[in-house]
Design a protein around this nucleic acid. Structure first.
Lengths: 214, 214
DNA sequence: GCGCGGTAAGTTACCAGGAAGTCATATCAA
DNA sequence: TTGATATGACTTCCTGGTAACTTACCGCGC
C-alpha cells in the first residue's frame, strides 16, 4: 500500500534553492501576519507543505529564517526607493514619486513592508547586520530628501531634521499600511489619492507621475 | 528567630486598592517595554515585589491586567485630547495645541502611549470594550479635526478623509515616539520643535500655546 | 485586656500547553 | 554506495494559570 499519496518521507525532487525561495515567501507572509515573535516555525512549515526540521536544515534557526526574509524585503524596498531618488525630482514631487514607486514595488509581495516595520523582531548578531544595512540605506535617502526640505526652510537644527525624518518615515508607513488594509486599491489609484492628500494640506500641487502606461 | 526581614508570607498591610494601582503602574511599564505578547506576568510580579498569584487574584488573567492598564491609559489620553479640542482652536493651531497638551499629559506616565499603540495586543471579549471606547473617542476627535481640513480643501471623498486620519494619527505617533526616545526634552521644548517642523513644511505659522505658566 | 473566628493579603509548588530546536531514520537520484 | 532531501518523535524550556496553604488584621463576646 505505498500509494503515491501516502509517500510521506524522502526527497520530493525539489532543489534546495527553489525550496529556500518558497520557504522565504511563506515565512514572510506568516511573519508579517502574526509578527515575528508570535509566528511559529511549525505553522510556516505546515503552510509551506514541508516539515520543521527542513527549515532548520536550511536556515539554522528561526532568526536565520527571518534574516533571509529581511534581506529579501530590504533589498526590494531600498532598491526601489534608490531608483526613484535617482530620477532627480525634488521636494514634494520626489515624495510623490517615491510613494508611487513604492506602491508598485510592494504590489507583488505586500508582506515585505509589514515585516520591515515589525516591532517584535529582536536584536542579535544574526539580524543586526541585515537590519543595519537596510536602515542605513533608508536613512541616507530620508536624510537626503528631508535635509533638503529643512535647508530650504532655513532650519539647520540637526535634532529638527532627525525628528522630521521620523515624521516622514511615519507618513510613508501610514500610507502604505492604509493601502495594505484596502487591497482593492490599485497602485495608480493610491498614487492619485496621495496627490489629493498632499494638496489638501499644502495647497494645489502638480506633478506627473512617471511610468504610467497607456 | 522570626526576624522581620525573614517574614516572606502573609499580609503586608497593603490595601487592595493601593496594590492594584501599584500593579497597574508596573504592568504598564513592562507591557510598554516588551509589548504585551512578550511581557511575562512573572516579570511584572517580580518588579512589583509580589507574587504572580496575587495578580491573578486581583485581575483574573493577563488580559484582565492589560484591560486595567488600557482603561487607565485610554482615559488619560482621551480626556486630555478632548480637553484641548474644547479650547476651540481650528486647523493648524488645533493640531499644535493637541500636541502640546499631549506632551504634558504623557510626561508623568510615558508608557501609556506605547501601550495604546502596541500592535501585539490581541482581540477578545475582555479587551474589545475598553479598546473600542478609547478608539471611538479618538476617532471622533480625529474625524472632527481632519474632516474640517478636508472640507476646507474641497475634498469630500470619505476614503480620502479616512486615509488622512491615518496619516495624522501616525504623525502624532511619530512625534510622541520621537519624544519618548529623547527623554531629556521637556514638553515645552518639544512643542516649540513641533511649531518649527510645521513651519518647515507649511511656511510660517504663528500660534501661542496656552497654559505656559511664569 | 484577651482569646477567637472570619476574612483579606500573600506565598510556594505545581500543572498543562505550546514552541524552539535536535536526533535517528527513511527515501531517492546519480 | 553515497549524499542530498526529507520526516516523525523527541527533549527542553518558558509561560499562563491554579490549588492549597500561611500569615496578619479586625471585630466581638467576656
Amino acid at each position: 500500500m505505498t500509494s503515491t499519496a501516502a509517500r510521506l518521507t524522502g526527497t520530493k525532487g525539489v532543489a534546495r534553492a527553489d525550496r529556500e525561495q518558497q520557504i522565504v515567501a511563506v515565512a514572510g507572509e506568516v511573519f508579517a501576519e502574526r509578527g515575528f515573535a508570535l509566528a511559529s516555525v511549525d505553522e510556516i512549515a505546515r503552510r509551506a507543505g514541508i516539515s520543521k526540521p527542513l527549515i532548520y536544515n536550511y536556515f539554522g534557526s528561526k532568526e536565520g529564517l527571518l534574516a533571509a526574509c529581511l534581506a529579501y524585503a530590504g533589498t526590494l524596498v531600498a532598491d526601489e526607493i534608490e531608483r526613484t531618488a535617482r530620477l532627480g525630482e525634488v521636494g514634494l514631487a520626489r515624495a510623490l514619486v517615491s510613494l508611487d514607486g513604492l506602491f508598485r514595488a510592494l504590489e507583488p509581495a505586500p508582506w515585505t513592508w509589514r515585516l520591515l516595520n515589525d516591532p517584535t523582531v529582536p536584536g542579535g548578531p544574526e539580524l543586526d547586520p541585515v537590519l543595519a544595512t537596510y536602515r542605513s540605506r533608508m536613512a541616507a535617502l530620508s536624510a537626503d530628501g528631508v535635509g533638503e526640505l529643512m535647508r530650504l526652510a532655513g532650519d539647520d537644527d540637526p535634532a529638527d531634521t532627525d525628528a522630521m525624518t521620523a515624521v516622514w518615515t511615519s507618513v510613508l508607513d501610514a500610507l502604505v499600511t492604509w493601502w495594505l488594509d484596502h487591497p482593492a486599491e490599485t497602485p495608480e489609484q493610491m498614487s492619485r489619492r496621495c496627490v489629493r492628500l498632499f494638496a489638501a494640506v499644502l495647497g494645489p500641487v502638480d506633478v506627473d507621475l512617471p511610468g504610467r502606461s497607456g
